[in-house]
Design a protein around this nucleic acid. Sequence first.
DNA 1: TCAAATAATTCAACCGCTAAACAAATTACG
DNA 2: CGTAATTTGTTTAGCGGTTGAATTATTTGA
Lengths: 390, 390
Amino acid sequence: MDGRSPVRQASVRAHNLALVLRHVAAASRPPSRADLAASTGLTRATVSALVDDLVGGGLLAEVGPAPRAGAGRPAAGLVLHGYGPAGLGLEINVDYLAGCVVDLTGTVQHRAIVHGDQRRLDPAGVLAAVADLGAELRAEAAAAGRTVAGAALAVPGLVSGVGLVHRAPNLAWHDVDAAGTLAAGPLGDLPLIVDNEANLAAIAELHADGQGLDSFVYVSGEIGIGAGIVLHRDLFRGARGWSGELGHVCVRPDGPRCRCGASGCLEQYAGQEALLRDLPPGEAGLARLRAEAALAEARLPAAGRSLGVALAGVVNMLDVDTVVLGGIFGPLAPWLAPAVEAELSQRVLTSAWSPMTVRASALGPAAAAVGAAGAVVRDILAEPAAWVRA
Amino acid sequence: MDGRSPVRQASVRAHNLALVLRHVAAASRPPSRADLAASTGLTRATVSALVDDLVGGGLLAEVGPAPRAGAGRPAAGLVLHGYGPAGLGLEINVDYLAGCVVDLTGTVQHRAIVHGDQRRLDPAGVLAAVADLGAELRAEAAAAGRTVAGAALAVPGLVSGVGLVHRAPNLAWHDVDAAGTLAAGPLGDLPLIVDNEANLAAIAELHADGQGLDSFVYVSGEIGIGAGIVLHRDLFRGARGWSGELGHVCVRPDGPRCRCGASGCLEQYAGQEALLRDLPPGEAGLARLRAEAALAEARLPAAGRSLGVALAGVVNMLDVDTVVLGGIFGPLAPWLAPAVEAELSQRVLTSAWSPMTVRASALGPAAAAVGAAGAVVRDILAEPAAWVRA
DNA sequence: TCAAATAATTCAACCGCTAAACAAATTACG
DNA sequence: CGTAATTTGTTTAGCGGTTGAATTATTTGA
């Protein structure tokens, strides 16, 4: 249904199945078949047939009739099936591995995180470890009666469409075939998505916020700085899937040299290394930065201004109205956000009549793992035809 | 067919009509029904039925059978109908009005341009003048046997979806209801699109280039600097339709103040006013800049570097691989492009393994008018169902 | 207890696509 | 020449999917 392929009756069915499912997911209370007919524009006869398929496929469940006001046969409410297919999300980051299982309703049912510097192992070792973590979670989910239908892996780097990690500078990875390696492991039977950590964290943010967010830039502050762009509740991937390299947007052409080879990249002003420069090293560095109010007050607003300059450029080009500060920028938002907001309101052309919103992410750590699982669920909900009578 | 609406059999028909039409438009030689069946994946029977409708609707025409090698019944070639519905494109710019009529094949059949400073008239006067221009072109087209099916107006400013010109700073327009005003004039019976000049010029570039360009940023250097972004042969509009404000991307946070209120905007380094600053005034200013080699060599590379810095940020976020220099930047490309390329190759993360292309626009003046007409044609070809048996 | 109201299902009709048979128009070749 | 081979395009039966109206199901209210 991508405009490039022919359409036959089966595609109509597939489209309308997804349409009904989307309306169930978006409804504020369990809708009846009649409600769905009204909201989708399909007839009740058609909706009934579609719902039958979706219930049969384990994607929808009926809930007991809610008490109604007025006469009439009571409606059977429909909800996403909490025990239908579920998504497994995995995340590799510089200083931890994480995973979780999310059901169709978007609820995180199982989660795990393993701290430790992943730069000590080679890529194959890291991938084996994360696969083991995933296999454990999958077993937990199976014990609870849920079937993991697919997996997604978040990586802090550039990923090509086929699951090849082109570069992950902070892991020192280079052309690692993540999809191929995982296919040989205990998760090899699952369909696998591999994507950038910021993209998947943005998906997590989108789902966590319910229906509130429509379009935003999610800024992922980890060792590097990435961005996931969501437009009209859909992830924006750019022309080749390598969008969102916010960390290497230029803030000052004559600024300090970046390890990417350019000069004055945002990462040199607001990256974790720049924020912690000259601080006593150690795991608690970031916590200390928050504690040392004087330093925070001096350093973070400057970083926020640089972040704001870079984001203003992005917003002038993409025209989103919301910026979400995630990763380490989330907890630091009280110090960063005012400066970001100030730069945006000064530099974004449309802010004169349509003010920008800057807020901290609603997500905790391992946001990308949650988003990865969410991406799997998203795909199931977007293409339910594969799940009915299969 | 936007994913938000129900799909019925009629939608299938509409989709496949558009599919067939797109394949005819993209073919290098007039395809037969059998060719189309093979390339679209539909059966020959279906393609025949669809083609009958399209020929009946005046969108396709049969050409005599081409000589073939080998046995078999000769094929009837199909081409876009040169005398079917046509698009009327109009452009309002600071120093001229332009218009043209483009047929379904993308050929410009009639064109007109009127030079003169449009800031002397009020918006209503300018709109009346451009409507008159459009009406003349429409009459010319009618005399030649072509029916104008719709119009599009390009404006150098921010346009909202309903045809309201929110701001056009260089025309000093503010909340001008262009669509409403034109609806009351001689073109009032035509469906009307109003869009930003850079967006429509990008569409013109897309069509002018045949099948070569897939994703690019078209930089429109006029009095201000705008950008039209094309991704996968489709115009990218951002979240609210106000994307592409390249002129106000920050190049140096502490640079000179811009009239938008911010500081260090690209327009202060590469805008027409900045390029011509301190040059003797007059219409020939730009020509003189080209002539005065010394000045050009000194000033344009610096402007190119600023342009490159801003574009590098854009490309890092959007991941396009081609930049097209349009408007006044087109003829100045020999001086600008090297500096732009240098900055891009240094600053764009992906350029290390996937080099960027920078080139001058293939279009002459009034590119936006051609693109506007192209946008109308595009819409007809994308939704042919409205034109068959109507 | 029965009428009104609302939910959900059933069924005939219609529409569009497919597959296969068929008709049309040309070349290849004995 | 004339027939076979080949390719294009059309016809027809069948199928899947939606519609709309009628029907069945289940509740409230008088």
